[in-house]
Design a protein around this nucleic acid. Structure first.
Lengths: 112, 112
DNA sequence: CTCCTCCGTTAGAAATATCTTACGTTAGAA
DNA sequence: TTCTAACGTAAGATATTTCTAACGGAGGAG
């Protein structure tokens, strides 16, 4: 998950990912969308591939890339878990607040 | 979202986030869990706070921190959207494959 | 008031990321 | 084979990140 976060942290790589999200493009086609040099894009593609966020397919002398949603599995789980835990805590606190801001021992929690 | 991704990309900051996910801790208590110096932790907390991933509360001379799940909203949406789009594409391709690997014009899609 | 604790901020060193230029490799056309 | 197109890789410059050491301010105890 470390690799995926670091890969996504770069804005250029997120843009690349958007490009190949719903279509397959060659390295050259991807590079044509940006103002940086082609080797720079190639390096970004290497990082994305290492993180499992894009899949590579060879077609003669070209290399075709497309997004690989499965590579996001770990990160998605991390965020979902965090999100769920946080919401649960907020809910608990809201209930405690509703039960009585001054009380110290609200009547052993029956939610809603 | 840029800020949140860069904040999460550092392993140390993810560990901090885990620590304050379900309890509130002071800066000093957080620092005590790591082997780096206290100012380093303070800087990480500044980054996390700027990204909206933690909330700060003052208690006398101390500063208490806890995770703020709402700060993940944008990133969660980004990942969920990406995930959904990718799964939809995979599903479409699987159906096309099932309809006939050699065919060029499968009989206008009736799913499953 | 003085003293002490807790913490953020600054300055600077070391590691890392991102880009450009130059080069090497592979696949197909002539 | 020779030539060309499409890419990846290596080397090096510059910017950014992450840490440590030193310092400064705010809040309570005596």
């Amino acid at each position: 998950m470390e690799e995926q976060l670091r890969a996504l942290a770069g804005p250029r790589r997120r843009q690349i990912l958007e490009l190949v999200q719903d279509r397959e493009l060659s390295a050259g086609q991807i590079a044509a969308h940006f103002e940086v040099t082609r080797p720079a894009i190639s390096q970004h593609l290497t990082v994305l591939k290492a993180a499992g966020l894009v899949a590579e397919r060879r077609d003669g002398t070209r290399r075709m890339y497309r997004a690989n949603p499965a590579g996001l599995t770990g990160l998605k789980q991390f965020i979902d878990r965090f999100w769920a835990t946080g919401l649960a805590r907020l809910k608990t606190e809201a209930e405690a607040e509703a039960a009585g801001p001054g009380r110290r021992q609200p009547a052993a929690g029956r939610g809603a």
